[in-house]
Nucleic acid binder design. Structure first.
Lengths: 211, 211
DNA sequence: GCCGGGAGTTAGCAAGCGCTAACACTTCTC
DNA sequence: GAGAAGTGTTAGCGCTTGCTAACTCCCGGC
């Protein structure tokens, strides 16, 4: 499920594959039933081993969720950062960020679902780590939005970023379009929504008027 | 001898108040920790009673979630249906629907969160009921979107509706604006997003161009 | 003044949970 | 070919969970 590993950590490659396989299965189950709704045995049998064998690869069930969510956050932050570092034109950068988030959400629906729903099930240190990474990712978006639309103040841009995430991450809940159509639709809607975040007071009446 | 099974929501008003109080507390807890992450004792102590007292009001913990989610879905469907029945002009109706959903999300963040995250924890019959109600609500939106923008085909309109729900329901995750500003921002973004759902193939390039 | 039943209490059960212990088998390495 | 390391197994522990049982208290109606 994890499309590209963030980087190849200096672990034995065979063991790393097993870990990833377990994490992918766990992500699917966590997404469907929630963290506490999934047992160790469920995860084990999903990868063809039974129960406690997982403790050869992870210290605890909490550690699985922790590693899952930190790796997602690192992938997103990394992807966002490299795109921001290109110094592209504001509207182009915004389009790139949207595309990136859309692609990730479409390719990893289970991971997106887990990240949205199970942040509260992390241990305190893990949650702090993930929150910090997420905050930096949001900051990239806030800067990009404000660069493209200077009339949006910072709190509004932050709220707008979260709203756009909600829009894009709605992917797992609707599956009636093929991938390319869905990507195009979400990209178009997300960019339009960002434009709609400007001058929110008048946006409503403008939207209600006929064009 | 054995007291009657308490599962009739339309009974004495005093008892009804207690039920609602319990459901509100449970919603808050379910939203924060997930269904399986909350114990009967947690819910009880949140309303000032301890543990098994809740079984005077609900048949089971599953029944609490079931009643919670069905009542949300009924409220949303009802609100959507009455607005659709006014026969208002398409763009006006769309604005009304957006406003309605925005208000509900801003006023009931815990309920919105539970509905988004804990549908999978329902019993099978409850889930079927909730799903049916939700489908009818989405259908109202699909019709409204297509009435306002006939060039959007039905599957795209359905996906767009889900995306707009994701946008609006992102409310619980961002709390840096006051209620009115937040409502205006979300309304503006949602309506812009719906407009952006038209002609998705060209929307991306259009959005990337300078205005 | 009693009494029937709604609403609460504590004790405790059966099941399920995460996790450890002890052991078995395969695969490198020297 | 022996040992180490890695990956799996089953048995079972201690704890928590949802829920029931048995009992108490309060309160309105006759």
């Amino acid at each position: 499920m994890i499309s590209p590993p963030p980087d190849a950590p200096d672990k034995p490659p065979g063991k790393q594959r097993r870990r990833d396989q377990i994490l992918a299965a766990a992500a699917e189950l966590f997404a469907r039933h929630g963290f506490h709704g999934v047992g160790i045995d469920d995860i084990g049998s999903a990868v063809g081993v039974s129960g406690p064998a997982l403790y050869r690869h992870f210290r605890s069930k909490d550690a699985m969720l922790g590693e899952m969510l930190t790796s997602i956050s690192e992938i997103l932050l990394d992807g966002g950062q490299t795109r921001a570092d290109t110094g592209a034109e504001p509207r182009t950068l915004l389009g790139e960020l949207v595309r990136f988030q859309v692609d990730f959400a479409l390719d990893n629906p289970a991971l997106i679902t887990v990240q949205e729903r199970n942040l509260g099930n992390l241990t305190d240190p893990d949650r702090r780590r993930v929150r910090a990474l997420q905050r930096r990712y949001v900051e990239i978006w806030v800067d990009a939005i404000r660069a493209a639309q200077p009339d949006v103040d910072e709190p509004a841009a932050r709220a707008a970023a979260h709203a756009v995430f909600g829009l894009i991450n709605s992917t797992p809940h609707s599956r009636h379009l093929d991938r390319e159509q869905m990507a195009a639709l979400l990209t178009g809607m997300a960019l339009a929504a960002v434009r709609g975040a400007a001058t929110p007071a008048s946006a409503t009446s403008a939207a209600l008027s006929l064009d």
